[in-house]
C-alpha cells in the first residue's frame, strides 16, 4: 500500500518533533496519583467488600431468635455465620491474588483478562451476598410463620383464605425482585461507564484470535 509507506516515512521522520518533557517534570509526574481504571475498580471493589462484610457481620439476629423462645435456632445460625466468615475470607484471598497478578508488562490481552477477573471475583461476592440475603429473608419468613407467636393471627387468615396467601406471597416476591433489579441496574451503570472501553477492546482482541 503506497499511502501506508508514505505515512511510515513521515511518521519516522517526525519522531523528534515533540516538545520534550524535562527531567524535573518527569520527577513531578511520578509523584502524582494515577487515575487508571484499575485504581477505580480497586477502590470500588474494596468499598463493596467492606459494605457487604459489614452488613453480614453487623446484622445480628440473636435477639430476634431469643424472642422466638427457640434457643436451638441460635446454634444453627452460629454454624451459618462461621460458614459465612469462611466464604468472606476466601473471597478476600481471591481478590488479593487476582490483584497482584495484574501487570502492565503482560500482553495486552492478558492484562485485560486479569482486570476482568478482579471484577468477576467481586461480582461473585456481591451475588453471593445477594443470594444469602434472599435465603435469609425466606428463612426469616418461615421462622416468623412457624415460631413467632405474634404471627398466629395472619397465619390463621392465610390458612383459611387463599386470597390472603396469594397476596402475601406476591408482595414478598415483588419486594425481592425489585430489590434485585435495583442492584442489577446499579451495577450495570457503575461498571458500564468504567469498563465499556475495556470490554470493547478485549472483545476486539479475542475476535482477532478466533
Amino acid at each position: 500500500m503506497k499511502e501506508l509507506d508514505l505515512l511510515k516515512k513521515d511518521w519516522q521522520k517526525n519522531t523528534n518533533s515533540f516538545e520534550q518533557v524535562s527531567e524535573i517534570e518527569i520527577y513531578k509526574m511520578i509523584h502524582k496519583k494515577s487515575s487508571s481504571i484499575v485504581k477505580w475498580i480497586l477502590i470500588i471493589s474494596i468499598l463493596e467488600v467492606l459494605l457487604w462484610t459489614c452488613l453480614s457481620v453487623c446484622f445480628n439476629s440473636d435477639d430476634y431468635l431469643i424472642k422466638m423462645k427457640h434457643p436451638e435456632l441460635i446454634q444453627y445460625f452460629e454454624v451459618f455465620a462461621y460458614f459465612n466468615y469462611g466464604v468472606i475470607l476466601f473471597f478476600i484471598y481471591l481478590f488479593y491474588k487476582n490483584y497482584i497478578t495484574i501487570s502492565t508488562t503482560a500482553s495486552t490481552k492478558q492484562l485485560m483478562s486479569d482486570i476482568l477477573k478482579i471484577r468477576k471475583t467481586v461480582q461473585y461476592y456481591v451475588w453471593y451476598n445477594l443470594a444469602m440475603l434472599v435465603v435469609s429473608l425466606i428463612i426469616g419468613f418461615i421462622i416468623a410463620f412457624v415460631y413467632n407467636p405474634e404471627m398466629s393471627v395472619l397465619k390463621d387468615k392465610i390458612a383459611t383464605n387463599g386470597k390472603v396467601m396469594a397476596i402475601t406471597i406476591g408482595i414478598l416476591t415483588l419486594t425481592t425482585l425489585v430489590f434485585l433489579g435495583a442492584f442489577w441496574l446499579f451495577y450495570r451503570v457503575l461498571y458500564g461507564i468504567l469498563l465499556r472501553r475495556l470490554y470493547a477492546n478485549y472483545k476486539e482482541l479475542k475476535k482477532i484470535d478466533l
Partner: peptide
C-alpha cells in the same frame, strides 16, 4: 510503578512500548 520489576534483560525502549501501549488501550480513562 512497573520499573522495579524491569530487569534490564530487554531494552528499556522495548519494555516501555509495552507498558505504554497497555496503558493507552487498557488502563487509561
Amino acid at each position: 510503578k512497573a520499573f522495579p520489576k524491569f530487569r534490564g534483560d530487554s531494552k528499556f525502549s522495548t519494555w516501555a512500548y509495552r507498558v505504554a501501549l497497555n496503558t493507552a488501550i487498557t488502563l487509561y480513562r
